[in-house]
Amino acid sequence: MRGVLWASWWRTRSRELAQAWRRIRYRSEVRFPVITRLAERMIAVNIFDSATRVAAQVLLTVVPLLFVVASLAPRALQEQLTSSLRALFGLTGESGEQLDEFFAGTDEDVQHAVGAVGSVMVLLSATAVSRAVQRLCRRAWGIPRGAARIAVWRWVVWIAVWTGLLVVQGPVRDGFGTGLWLGIPLTFLLQTAAWWWTQHLLLGGAIGWWPLLPGALLSAVAVTALSLGARLYMPLALNRVLGEFGAFGSVFVLLSWLIVLCVAIAIGLSTGAVLAQEPYLADRLGSPVRDPGSGAP
């Protein structure tokens, strides 16, 4: 008898909670319609799928590109790239030694193995990241496929500029020798400028500069925060898996971190696009109140 009463009470309570939740959601949607639009945009963007695609392309195409760049670059630039990668992932101990071995002695070996034609092919294959980021930006703004025509040179320029930005990550994060008190603001400003320019370039100017700023700011906040967290998490995780599983384990750790990073960027760009299209900001930024396209791609 007690069990029957308990089941009846629980069903009644569950219905009451469900009704209360529906009332709260309805009131929230009425008072804060941006929440509904943001949820719809997140679903349209397909955050985790888009972020995973970008992360996978980075791992599969950018890493070989960095390998080729390091082999062809002067020794000073190669050392700067190694230092920046070490600062970016907070590599110390065994993981730092693995990075040094990765770039050690690659000059002649890679130059002979790859050559000029191979280097061009590696660069072109790396533009897969550009295309993946372009699709993410287009979905974040609800621009349908084909509405924004993108020239191939934009993909090449994007990957080339971001490779250059990667080289200077070390000095910027260190505040050019002054420490994190300057390095954190500089990282934030650099990331803001990079993602602001990225959206404008890969959208082909379909959206004006100012409407793109909220997404750039939110993405920069996410990247800066995660870069600080990487200094604590990545060395421990990489050194542990290197000891247990060898170099293959580090691939999974790196991919997991890249997915988290890309998810944060995707959320930042999508949220910024929705906020920029709200009436209050749209009037001040000159952005469209409604989606610039007729539907999601």
Rank of each mutant, 00 (worst) to 15 (best):
G293L: 09
G204L: 09
L228G: 14
G215W: 07
L212P: 01
G286P: 09
A104K: 10
I24V: 14
R139C: 07
Q111D: 02
A151T: 03
P279T: 06
E108V: 14
S71P: 02
W197I: 13
L190V: 15
T92K: 14
G93A: 09
R22E: 13
G93F: 07
A276L: 09
D49N: 11
A193C: 10
S250M: 06
V157W: 10
V117T: 11
S130R: 03
Q277M: 15
A39H: 11
L238N: 09
P292R: 05
E108I: 12
P214T: 01
V221L: 15
E101Q: 14
V223I: 14
T224K: 07
V30H: 10
S270P: 04
V114H: 02
M121K: 04
D291P: 00
L232W: 13
W197T: 13
T163D: 00
D107R: 14
L81S: 02
L190N: 02
A44R: 13
I143L: 15
P74Q: 07
V62T: 09
L60K: 01
I35V: 15
S250F: 00
D49E: 13
E244K: 06
P33H: 04
A113N: 04
L255M: 13
A70I: 01
S287I: 00
V63L: 14
V122K: 03
P214F: 02
R27F: 08
L72Y: 15
E101K: 14
T192R: 06
A296R: 10
Q111S: 12
R22F: 03
V120G: 11
F89I: 00
V253P: 01
Y26V: 11
F89R: 05
W162S: 10
P185Y: 07
V167D: 02
L242M: 10
G90W: 03
L212K: 00
M1V: 05
L212C: 12
R149L: 11
L166Q: 10
V263A: 08
V168S: 03
W141D: 08
R149H: 11
Q80M: 15
C262I: 00
Q277E: 14
S71R: 03
I259A: 01
I143F: 09
F103Y: 14
L226P: 05
V54I: 15
L88E: 09
A56N: 01
A39I: 13
V152Q: 08
V253K: 02
L218I: 10
E101I: 05
V168G: 04
V253Q: 01
W210R: 15
A128E: 08
T192S: 15
R86N: 07
E244M: 10
V156T: 09
